[in-house]
Every structure is written in C-alpha cells, then in structure tokens.
Design a protein around this nucleic acid. Sequence first.
DNA 1: TTGCTTGCAAATGATTTGCACTGCT
DNA 2: AGCAGTGCAAATCATTTGCAAGCAA
Lengths: 147, 147
Amino acid sequence: MAAMTEFDRVVTDLLGQHDLRYTVGRRALVKVLRVADRPVTLPELLGLAGDLPQSSAYRNLALLEEAGVVRRLVHGGDHAHYELAESLTEHHHHLICNHCGRVTDMTLSPALEQTLDDSFGSIAEASGFVASSHVIDVYGLCSQCAN
Amino acid sequence: MAAMTEFDRVVTDLLGQHDLRYTVGRRALVKVLRVADRPVTLPELLGLAGDLPQSSAYRNLALLEEAGVVRRLVHGGDHAHYELAESLTEHHHHLICNHCGRVTDMTLSPALEQTLDDSFGSIAEASGFVASSHVIDVYGLCSQCAN
DNA sequence: TTGCTTGCAAATGATTTGCACTGCT
DNA sequence: AGCAGTGCAAATCATTTGCAAGCAA
C-alpha cells in the first residue's frame, strides 16, 4: 500500500486496537465523513460514497464507532447522523434545523467550555452523578429554511 | 366533573387549542409524567400507569406532544423518554447514565443560561442560523452505576 | 489456515397505522 | 347524529443479524 497520512495512521491504530482492519469499504466511509463538513445520515453517506451495500455501511459504522473513529448522533429525525469522533477532530456542538433536520457544527470558546464543565461537574456531583462528557444541541432554523 | 386544579386547566386548554379532549387515558399518562421526577420510557410509563394499551399510549403521547403538553427525548438507548413540556415545568437539562440509560433532571443558574443563550445566538447568527432553543445533555454514571 | 470482511436476504423491534367500535357533547 | 377516542391486529421502516463466500496475514 502507498503512503499513509498521519490521519490514516491514527485510524489504522484505533482499528488495530480492536482487531479490525482498515479496509477499502471502511476507508470510503471515513473519507466521506472527513470531507463532509457536517454530520451526515446513512442515506447521504451512501449517496456520497459511491456504491456501498447498506448493510455493510451500517455494520462498519457500528464497528468504527466502537473503535472510537466515528460518533453516532441521535436526534428526533428519521435517521441517525454520523461524524468523525472528537479524538480525530475537535470538541464541538451542533446546530440542528427544526425544519429540514440538517446538522452543522458549532464551537464554543475554551473559556465557556471550561465554565460549563465546572458547572456540570458540581451540579451532577450533588446527586452522586459522575459527569464525563456533555453534548449541546441548539435548535432553530438553518439559513436555507429561515428564508 | 369535579374540581379541576390549575394544572389540569392549563393542560385542558392546551389540548382544546388542538381540538383534543383531556380523556381518562390522557390524564393517566400526564399524571404519571407529573409524579415521576424524571423522564420515563414507554415501558416504564405503562408499568406505572396501570393498564393502558401500548398503541394508545404511543398515540396519545404523540398527540400530547403536538399540543405542547409533553416532550419527547431521544437518546441512544432503545426507547425514547417522555416528560412534561417545559411550559408546564421549568427549563432544565439532563444527566444521562452511560450504563443504565437513566435520565435525571438538572437545572443551571439563570445567569449561566443567559450566558449560553447569548453565546449560542451570536455563534449561530454568524452562519445565518436562527437559534430558538437549546438542549444540554451531560453523560456519565449515575449514583447507582458509579458504584 | 485462521479469522476478519462482505453482500445478500431475512429478522428485529420500537413505533405507527387501519379499522371497527365506543363514548362524549 | 357526528366526530373524537380506543383497542386490537397488522404494517412500517431504520437498523441488525445469519450465513456462505472472499480475502489478507
């Protein structure tokens, strides 16, 4: 196999830790997720990835998720959305359109993130809950749907 | 019918605005949601509500949601969770156990909520997105599962 | 060879819906 | 009478899984 980018090396390693191979089909999925600048649904993924069998796509996304390469987002819509895991990107949140369901990324300032983690940690602690991560979804209308 | 509490009056009104009646079955669902101090799944709801047919429960929860009486939460687990809409309770967020899936409520200080809304609003605006509400989920381990 | 992968077809399971009947108003 | 509500059974549909064949180490 030809030259491997640092990104591919990291993915290969994550997969290897779970006895999984970085096959052509998996590369195709990861590539689409990497190129798309937002979380995508499975139908979108299939459309963008050329010709992958649906069941293999589902199966590989599940494995990629276990290996920490992919993150699966569940909102109210018909399909889940998939994006690269934060270890491969950056901690961020989502803007979700109430009308068309499109999801786009949003990043908060490190200072605000710190404030939030501190708040969540202490509030959770009060009830014996051990907080480890947080997710923020902002709902509204995307530029397309807002008219 | 006998005396009606202020709460029931509000619910009746919300339903009435959608040409829906506040029937016995719907009262049973709302009562369980009100008594439970946390969002519950449909199976839990059926268990707590005595003997309601599953399909009617699903159907009525969907109608109650449309009428603004109930809110449906979707996370990764097998079942959605249901709680009373914020117009009947208070703006709050959720602590979600990674192990057992239990969801509990969490309230942030008004000052922090204000900071968040300001931040979300301006960040969203930069991409033409019109923000209208936000959801925050804190993941971790509940007191039961943390050992 | 051993064991991870794959594609197809079939299964799963939460949620939804068609329909005939009941009950408010 | 007229329409909303209910329960049952059957349908939906995104997602998962069994299995037999393919491929890499």
